[in-house]
Nucleic acid binder design. Structure first.
Lengths: 289, 289
DNA sequence: CTTTCATGGAACAATAATGCACCATTGTGA
DNA sequence: TCACAATGGTGCATTATTGTTCCATGAAAG
């Protein structure tokens, strides 16, 4: 095999079963995976994967290649591990500040993967509704949704955060329209705007909760209808967008750090990792799913 | 490292010392090698190779990567070896017919590499001035220079063969012009055309030899001036092109096989291998060096 | 010491790989 | 049984990668 990346492709398809899932794992599209696989099978003049109901399964020959690919992967991972261990620049504590929703719903798996990938780095995840002050050293890296770039910090704007209205999938059917209620935020001056944008501005507020996570659980338990980030609402099978409500892209998501910190390899590394992780979930977060 | 091909790049640069040599080994250009290396060093925020007089040398960190790359290469080579050994389709005899000049001057190393790469295949190299008749089973694969595609065979036209006039680098200086002589082929009806195209059509024939290799050695020994393929004359440090003679691209080089044989994996394999090998030497054979 | 050659860097053009949007089909759940 | 979602195949447009050509520099050979 001339192209060593094809080993990664074989491995991804073997593990992900379907072309599309493999494509996500590789960070490309199913088209590319299919094309590269076709070229590869043409190269060997042999079948590497066979189509089975619901996906791809390696042929006996394919399994040989999978075994080789796993060996290659082990060598590479071991090398990376050694690199991280030997590089004192990639050791030590680093603090990431982000909101609870992202921490719980969006990046839980990814942050765990980071610590597994770089065991010498002690990642501290500081979830908070208020965002840490980088100037005071409250955090090294921040993810925040904000309308504009905060003053003197550096980083990049990723994309916009999608917000939408949700309810439990049975709520609208099982509840008489006159009993519909909003689950509203507490002491939030933009709520009137939200309400005006909603499909049901005439519905009254049933309960006001300050914590967005608690509002989410209230929606989930059929207490009423409410607004949430698309990445919170869309993945849950029991939640549905309210009829007539489309995602609103209001805030930009910024990935930021302090200029004094950005030169640190471990800070660069974390930011690159978070960029990759968040870009991979762009459609989910924007609510285009 | 995300791109596993970069391990191959590091390995090639480590072994080839210079960007250009590494590029040849990888089948690309020095620009690409430089760019990929720069990206890689930016990724790691560390130097992988240091510039030393006359080339590149791996830094301590680079040597770690080189070691990893060698492990990866070993895994891949072992896998390929197993594949070849286990695949009975890639075993057995195969006969290649080609002219002596290509066999001796152009593909000597490459054909050896092929047998080393695929030990289960017994490659028989049939050098001959007349080309084997594939219909009679005299050979499985043929490389020949010919003006047009022979009848019913399949394969591909690679590029044109460059021919030029040569002499020993001291010949023209050390020999009085009146004593200059041509080394001509024997019983070759196109020789008058050749002579007319030459820079010195008035020079007389000193000796006529049928075997092109013998003519080459005659030129090399200062017997006279003669015509030879660019891939024979250009690489030799003691030979020079005659002043005023430029490479003539007359014949196409064809890589051919019989339609009945092309479906055999080992035939496909050999043809792919020869295509790669010959394409890598295109500039040399065309005389553009 | 001069000449010659090869190296590798930079800007532009060409090419090949990739992503996107569409669709038919198949598996899955109500 | 029907409807829905997801799969993966196809054609087209885009992007990114690569190759080409040039040049300045530095090393090796005469």
């Amino acid at each position: 095999m001339k192209d060593w990346n094809d080993y990664a492709l074989i491995l991804a398809l073997h593990r992900s079963i379907t072309l599309r899932a493999a494509a996500v794992a590789l960070g490309t599209t199913h088209t590319t995976v299919a094309r590269r696989l076709a070229l590869l099978e043409k190269q060997y003049s042999a079948s590497i994967f066979e189509r089975i109901p619901g996906g791809y399964r390696a042929t006996p020959f394919g399994e040989q290649l999978v075994a080789t690919a796993m060996q290659v992967e082990n060598v590479v991972r071991e090398s990376e591990r050694l690199y991280c261990a030997s590089n004192e620049k990639l050791a030590g504590p680093i603090t990431l500040s982000l909101g609870e929703p992202m921490s719980q719903f969006l990046l839980a798996k990814e942050l765990g993967e980071f610590t597994r990938l770089y065991p010498s780095i002690q990642l501290k995840v500081k979830s908070s509704t208020t965002f840490a002050d980088l100037d005071k050293g409250e955090a090294d890296v921040v993810i925040r949704g904000a309308p504009k770039l905060p003053e003197h910090l550096i980083g990049r704007r990723l994309y916009k955060l999608g917000l939408c209205f949700y309810a439990h999938k049975d709520y609208c059917e099982n509840t008489p329209r006159k009993d519909w209620r909003w689950i509203a935020p507490l002491e939030n001056e933009v709520w009137p705007q939200w309400l005006a944008q909603s499909p049901y501005p005439e519905v009254t507020i049933g309960i006001a909760i300050d914590d967005i996570i608690s509002r989410y659980h209230a929606i989930l338990n059929g207490v009423g209808m409410g607004r949430a980030a698309c990445f919170m609402g869309d993945p849950h099978p029991d939640l549905v967008r309210l009829p007539g409500s489309a995602p609103v892209l209001k805030y930009d998501i910024w990935l930021l750090t302090h200029p004094d910190l950005y030169e640190q390899p471990k800070v660069k590394l974390l930011m690159q990792f978070l960029t990759d992780a968040l870009m991979a979930k762009k459609t989910l977060v924007e609510g285009e799913a």
